[in-house]
Design a protein around this nucleic acid. Structure first.
Lengths: 273, 273
DNA sequence: CCAAAAGTGTTGAGCCTACACCCATGA
DNA sequence: TCATGGGTGTAGGCTCAACACTTTTGG
């Protein structure tokens, strides 16, 4: 399976022979890029939002004019981890920056796909990530070398496509995880502008989480200001900052507090039911 | 970096050459095995519990009598994913069964460690998992081929050891994750017998989560029965099943309901604060 | 002044905390 | 009967759901 002989010599251990164990044939990072398209139907109306995922169409031939693996199918953006990168997350960051032209976007690793046979080229291991990218950054997207087309699909649309490799399974998992994360963590903030109105957050949550987890009532606007991870935005002079972008009535702007998500533990045993 | 030529031929794509990209030198699965030692000081007293992690001491020489990499240091149990396994999780399951002699234990993947340089032998990728193993299964533990010693360490002790590779970092991450999981999911059940008393669960939670997340009061025994994922244990005839193992007064036994953890979403937006 | 979104007032229900107290049992 | 862990009774407080209602504003 392997003819590799690359050994870093270290003190007495230089006898080690890498031949002794099996090695993968490749190591890649794939990214499920989510965005929410936000369409303003009219002035003074909350926007119509839709959750979409960005896919690329794999080229029919590669750079050397040879037939490309899984060419012509839609796939998650991604690629091989190159040797000068500090691992799969780094590679995913680079891919994400290449696809969107923007750095510093939200990216999270959520799984490893390593079943032999998932890629016809050999035993290729994929690190799966999801990214949240505000719609405006996808405007200036550009196709990478081996991609010929880029497109946003609704979740419904994506399930009717024929995807490359095991990307359908990866996307299914990504959707589950992003839904859970939006409900249970504050990642929703990456879909929203820094300062947002109660209705914007409410529409987003109802879009992603169907359940009656979010009260549709006016109760939400009353509760949002009391949530421990959200605060009202004030102006310099201390007065409340409001916006009229969704209604004639000025509505309060909120923002997510700068908290350490890691330390924000909500025990199921002390929760109130 | 690579001399590999293993290509699965597939329809028109047989021209593909694996040489074109960089491959890892190895793919391993490591497991942080947690257990809670439960010492009964006296009859009719709740046990004294302590959270521990199982480590192995790497042999000084390997099977071929050559000096072993990182020999003599404590390390997480684990090993290379072999070619007939369906990926890293499978390999971890095998390792866990080998270390404990028991199958079907709780095992969860929580991260990938793939920074070049983390292993002196080359670019070796590790899938990190944590396992929860009831203490009794660690009694009949046996050292694997390349291990000479097995020992349980308290979390305090482990931080004063010199560990192999980046295992200290992996363990730190594992501890964070298992603490969060115990607070936010029902994995605590894997530390407990199927039927447990309120005090057993309370001691466990207080052991792992220091915060005042769990009220020390008698309030806990009142609340536990109302938690949506726990139910009281009844006897055949419908009467409540009680135990006297921790006190002279018979105390109620509880068990975790069989729920789908995945679908048990607790939105931070609808939570009560 | 109308329409529409934002937000307030109010009431009753349910859960939580705290504290005091009772219960069951082996020694 | 005592010591001890387990469990109950109750009052006050807080949050929440629900419903009706008011406010703000551009057109």
């Amino acid at each position: 399976m392997n003819g590799n002989n690359h050994v870093k010599s270290e003190d007495a251990l230089r006898e080690y022979n890498v031949n002794e164990f099996v090695t993968p044939d490749g190591y890649t990072s794939d990214i499920a890029i989510f965005t929410i398209t936000s369409e303003k139907k009219q002035e003074y109306k909350p926007p119509i939002m839709e959750l979409k995922i960005m896919l690329i169409k794999r080229a029919l031939v590669n750079a050397e004019e040879k037939p490309n693996i899984e060419g012509g199918k839609w796939a998650l953006p991604g690629g091989f981890v190159s040797h000068n990168e500090a691992g799969g997350y780094d590679a995913a960051l680079r891919e994400l920056a290449e696809e969107t032209g923007v750095k510093g976007l939200h990216l999270k690793h959520f799984g490893v796909y390593d079943k032999p046979g998932r890629d016809p080229r050999g035993w290729i291991i994929s690190n799966a990530h999801y990214a949240i990218v505000p719609e405006r950054y996808l405007a200036n997207r550009k196709a990478a070398d081996d991609a010929i087309e880029v497109e946003l699909f609704t979740l419904k649309e994506v399930f009717s496509l024929s995807l490359s490799f095991d990307h359908m399974k990866i996307i299914e998992d990504a959707i589950k995880i992003i839904k859970r994360d939006i409900a249970e963590t504050t990642v929703a903030k990456h879909f929203l502008p820094k300062e947002f109105t109660a209705s914007e957050l409410r529409v987003l949550l109802q879009l992603v989480i169907n359940e009656p987890v979010v009260k549709e009532d006016s109760a939400f606007s009353r509760k949002i200001g009391k949530l421990p991870f959200i605060e009202v935005v004030k102006q310099r002079d201390g007065s409340l900052k409001k916006s009229q972008r969704n209604s004639k009535t000025p509505s309060q702007l909120y923002k997510f507090k700068d908290i350490n998500e890691e330390e924000f533990v909500r025990s199921i045993y002390s929760a109130k039911y």
